[in-house]
């Protein structure tokens, strides 16, 4: 065993260095987002695979998608302002912006619903004529489902703000909520761009 060498020697010997570490909850949130990314990545890849096989009926995307996109981007801004105000301990501001955010979120869902109404109007159904339509319903529907969970999250944080449980020293909850909200915003923009490009 003359060639025995311990390859694992690092800088320190008797001083055990602290290991790197993020907040585990924050980290878990990012991992959760990763798995949501995989859901939508697989659905959009499935869309491409299926489309390349032909028998694909194209239709106009609902123009109202532009409106919904603007609403969602706005809500991302308002959520971020709320987060910013929480860091500065302006609790009244936090409450206001959080409520506005959730209202914008609900507004987004309502306008998305009108997009579905539009689709029905041009005879694109979830079930029936062509799977191109079904895909659109699935993508928007799943995104809406996630957004509903985000709105619930925002409401929980809002309630906590009223209970003085959100402030500059207790920022994690609102930070996670902001991350989730931005993520769903970005996800929608990706889906919209994807649909514009591939429909």
């Amino acid at each position: 065993m003359s060639s025995y060498k311990s390859p694992m020697v690092e800088q320190e010997s008797d001083v055990a260095q602290p290991t790197l570490g993020m907040n585990p909850k924050k980290f878990s949130m990012w991992l959760f987002l990763l798995s949501v990314v995989m859901i939508f990545a697989s659905l959009t890849s499935g869309y491409i695979v299926r489309k390349s096989e032909g028998n694909w009926v194209d239709f106009e995307l609902p123009p109202i998608f532009w409106v919904t996109t603007i609403i969602l981007v706005l809500s991302s801004v308002t959520h971020h302002i709320a987060f910013y105000q929480a860091k500065k301990d302006n609790l009244d501001q936090v409450k206001g912006w959080m409520i506005i955010t959730s209202l914008l979120g609900i507004g987004f869902l309502v306008t998305q619903f009108y997009a579905w109404v539009y689709l029905v109007g041009i005879n694109v159904y979830f079930v029936g004529n062509n799977v191109a339509g079904s895909f659109l319903y699935v993508l928007t529907g799943l995104h809406a489902l996630h957004l509903i969970s985000a709105i619930i999250f925002v409401l929980i944080i809002t309630v906590k703000t009223f209970q003085f449980k959100v402030h500059s020293k207790n920022i994690l909850g609102i930070e996670l909520s902001t991350t989730y909200w931005h993520f769903l915003d970005a996800l929608w923009i990706y889906l919209f761009a994807f649909l514009l490009f591939f429909h």
Binding site: Q17, P18, T19, G21, M22, N23, P24, F27, S28, L31
Partner: peptide, 16 residues
């Protein structure tokens, strides 16, 4: 999610 998050963030001192 728990496993990954634990391995990355909760190692004791010196556990590189």
């Amino acid at each position: 999610i728990n496993y990954v998050s634990t391995v990355i963030n909760m190692r004791t001192k010196g556990m590189t």
